[in-house]
Each structure stands twice: as structure tokens, then as C-alpha cells.
Write a protein that binds this DNA or RNA. Structure first.
Lengths: 150, 150
DNA sequence: GGTGAAACGTAGGCCGT
DNA sequence: ACGGCCTACGTTTCACC
């Protein structure tokens, strides 16, 4: 639906890197005039390709001291079983992402908590209580050398 | 380390919602003068609480039809080996996230590509070429019932 | 796509509290 | 230490080429 335009691609890449770059600096980096650049950005915003702009917060400095991924294996592969599991996670604030994946487990979750104690509580009292859950493997995030999550 | 300041919290919430709001509009919304608001924003940027700003892209409209997580095991656990690996990923646009995790592998990557062919190219020509890489396990994302990255 | 100019926003010095 | 005012400077934006 959208023809691959070299200028637009470069603009997009730069805006994902630095969403607050001035239009002038952006224009200079892509080699267009400010007005042409602005028109392209506005067009991409209007068609919904650029959904918005966000400040990126350092979770540690904002009081989130514990991040982990959990691989979840289910023992109930029925549609109802999966839906029940997904519904249970939808209301848990610690669960920031839930991905349905291929492989030896069914789900990959991203969990963010205040500290290890808060994580343990979630692990045993929320996840451990669900009847569909067969296996849980926690991978604690020690650092993220690259993170371009929106 | 950081006392809960009512103004800063409001500023932060607004900037996460709209990272491109003008300082003037931000000042009006929090009820401060533009200069006071700017100083607070700059202080939060300087202390690293605000790490940066990003445009949020609609993946479908950007032609991204393939998302996967890759667990990467290294055979080189030295500081230099890990830094070389991280540097190689920093410039790869397919790598959206790189997390250093505990467990039987060292890294968890989130990969976004146009299609399976583009992913295969990245897998063999970029990752497969790095000397530090010992094991690669791909988990294809079939869906994300919950995703609060946006 | 580029140019130009008016409208708008930024950023920092300065002063008051 | 922190907020408001002022202002020179930079940026955005749009009608027009």
C-alpha cells in the first residue's frame, strides 16, 4: 500500500532514533529542504505510519528495579485454555507483554516489577495459581544494550 | 534517590504520552512557566531519567510481517567478546531489542523483518557470521495478546 | 522539491521570593 | 533552590514558485 521511498525510510529511521530532532536538522541529514521534509513527516503521520512520539524513561530511575522474561509452557492447549490464560494476564500490571510463540513453550512474557520481592509475589500468587500453567522459566534481565521499544 | 515531585511526575506522564509536545504547551498543562518547565525537563534528561525520545511506528504499515525472539548463546564470555557482539547488533536495524539475561543463554533479541526471507538473510548473514555466537534458537511471534510497548 | 517570511517556540540571563 | 519575566535567536509552517 505504500511505495518504498528512500527518503521516507531514512526519515523514519532517524525519527525512531531521535523523535525530538528538529525538522531542520532532519532535513539536513536526509538531504532535503525543511519544507519537503516536513511534508513527508506530516504525510506519514496522517496515514498512521507514525503513530506518535514518546519519551523513553529509564525504568530503574523511575522505580522499576526488576525486569524479566518468562517462558510459559501450558498443559492445556485447547482454545478455552489459552483464552483463560490470556485473560488472567490481561489484568496483571506486572505483565507488560505477552507473546504467543512457536517452539517448546507457548508464551513469552515480559514482566516489570518494583523489586525481587514484588516479582516473587507475582510469580507464586498470580502465575503459579493458574491451572493451565505447566512450566515456568524465568530469565532475569541484567541489562539491555539495545532497546528500541516504543 | 529521587523524591517524588508532583510537577516532575506530571511532566513525565505527558512526555511519555506525547514526546513532541512543545515546551510551551507542556508548561501550560502542568501549570508552570515555560522556563521552569524547560529546566525540569532538562534536569530529568541530564540525570538520565528521560533517556530520549522516539517516534512510534505502526509495524504493519511499515511492512514488518515477521517478528521473532532469538535466544543467543555465546562461546566467548570475555568482556571484549560481549562488547564485540553488542556492537555488531547496535547497527543492525532488524535488532529492535537486545537483553542480557540470566539462564542457559546470554542474550535475548527481538527481531523485526519484512518477511521470512529477510529474516533468514539476517539470521545467516549477520548473526551466523559473528564469531562469538555458539547457539541460536528462534521463537517466531505468532501473536501478542498483550503488548504495552506502545 | 525549493524559497522566503511571518508566526511560533526555545533557551538562558536576570531578578524576586 | 526555584519560579517568572524578558528577549535574542532558532525553528516551523505555508503560500507561492
Amino acid at each position: 500500500m505504500r511505495q518504498s521511498n528512500h527518503f521516507d525510510d531514512r526519515i523514519l529511521r532517524i525519527l525512531v532514533e531521535d523523535g525530538r530532532i528538529t525538522n531542520q536538522a532532519l532535513a539536513e541529514r536526509v538531504g532535503l529542504s525543511p519544507s519537503a521534509t516536513l511534508r513527508r513527516v506530516q504525510a506519514m503521520e496522517a496515514m498512521g505510519l507514525i503513530k506518535g512520539y514518546r519519551a523513553v524513561i529509564d525504568p530503574e530511575k523511575a522505580g522499576i528495579g526488576f525486569t524479566a522474561y518468562i517462558a510459559v509452557g501450558l498443559n492445556d492447549h485447547t482454545k478455552d485454555g489459552q483464552e483463560g490464560f490470556e485473560r488472567a494476564l490481561a489484568s496483571a500490571p506486572e505483565v507488560r507483554e505477552c507473546h504467543n510463540i512457536t517452539g517448546n513453550v507457548e508464551y513469552l512474557l515480559r514482566i516489570e516489577a518494583r523489586d525481587l520481592a514484588a516479582y516473587k509475589h507475582f510469580h507464586t500468587e498470580v502465575l503459579g495459581v493458574l491451572p493451565q500453567v505447566a512450566r515456568l522459566t524465568t530469565y532475569v534481565v541484567m541489562g539491555s544494550p539495545k532497546d528500541e521499544r516504543a
